[in-house]
Design a protein around this nucleic acid. Structure first.
Lengths: 204, 204
DNA sequence: AGTTGACAAGAATTGCATTTTTTGTCAACA
DNA sequence: TGTTGACAAAAAATGCAATTCTTGTCAACT
């Protein structure tokens, strides 16, 4: 649950919690105003800090943004992975909830800033690090689908588990662009998961 | 194959063909440069016409754009409908080819102008007319799925044919946003169709 | 670890004037 | 149906100066 050392930091201590608190606030500000229009002042205020205090934690706006994006990816991935691993829920529920955590949850906060944020992210965050998160999400998806008995279904349909996971992710991306709210996304994603995976089966 | 009277014009004559020729050229120009940066001069040149000659066919740039969009929607819908109706092909092939006609084919030409064009379309074309085309596409999709024997599959999965069609369309939208070329879209859409519909069956 | 105040350099915004391009409509003509 | 040439009005692009905002970094202090 604590920030990975994958991101390159020591095990969680009190300063680490503070850092994450700041990143969470930064994320809200960046989501609401976009990268350019968000100011260090706004982030500092939201994190109950002076602007100069914020610079004690992050050396520049770019670094703050980069770490915010990685934090968001990490958080969403963790949440999605946890959901996918929870075998007490039927598979289609897990899949739609996981994709909701991965894309749906951000729709409301990000709104129209989405293009600018994607642009800024691809500009200020090493693309390989972003695609690494996507790869890992697909890995968790594939594992859950396999454990959920989808291997036989895939065999019936003549496709691989990876192709099934790719399709589910593509569907989620499509729904994001055609849904106005996170709520609408959640409902439609649940339907699409059932369409692709079949009805919820107990122990599935 | 000729332009419908749905769009509000008399049966196809020579002038109608000329009109469609112009609309086809206009479409290419709008796709390549976007609505604002495309000029009547450019369209006229592409259609081998003087600018003033172009105004004999379309009273304004806005009208030209509107009719171009409707023409594109009409053409794509006709093509998709024709493909979906061709029972000599297996259902998944028909579905992926139809969605390719509906969204994939435009990826290369439109490229980065997509947001501006969508904006302009929603601004200059009555939204109801656009969504009407989408509704009709979904109708054709549902019909093809039903005739292809997907009703029993849907019953197995506990979903409706409409939900299946919605999901396929959402997947196509998702692939468009994550594919760089029409070609890549076509390949991945074919895979996703197999994922959702199962393997091609003869007579399916 | 944090505060405040101050500061230079850079970025973004604003306002305004200028120039160029484009639109839409003429008339004269084939 | 089409052409050309011409035209006013609107729109878009360009340039520039003034100004305001923001970043990043001080030092001094708690």
């Amino acid at each position: 649950m604590s920030i990975d050392r994958k991101i390159g930091r020591p095990p969680a201590g009190p300063e680490e919690l503070r850092r994450c608190g700041i990143l969470g606030e930064a994320l809200k500000i960046f989501a609401r105003f976009g990268f350019r229009k968000a100011s260090m002042e706004q982030v500092a205020e939201a994190a109950r800090l002076s602007r100069q205090g914020l610079y004690r934690h992050f050396p520049s706006k770019e670094a703050l943004f980069r770490d915010s994006v990685l934090f968001a990816l990490h958080t969403s991935l963790s949440e999605a992975a946890d959901i996918l691993a929870d075998r007490s829920l039927p598979l289609p529920h897990r899949v739609s909830a996981a994709l909701d955590a991965w894309v749906g949850k951000h729709i409301d906060a990000v709104g129209a800033n989405y293009p600018e944020l994607v642009e800024a992210a691809s500009l200020h965050v090493e693309p390989a690090r972003i695609s690494d998160f996507e790869t890992r999400l697909l890995g968790h998806l594939v594992s859950a689908l396999r454990r959920g008995g989808m291997a036989t279904v895939c065999k019936d349909r003549g496709v691989t588990l990876t192709q099934l996971a790719d399709t589910l992710l593509a569907t989620a991306l499509g729904l994001r662009s055609s849904c106005q709210t996170s709520d609408e996304f959640g409902r439609r994603m649940a339907v699409s998961a059932k369409v692709v995976l079949g009805p919820p089966r107990v122990g599935g």
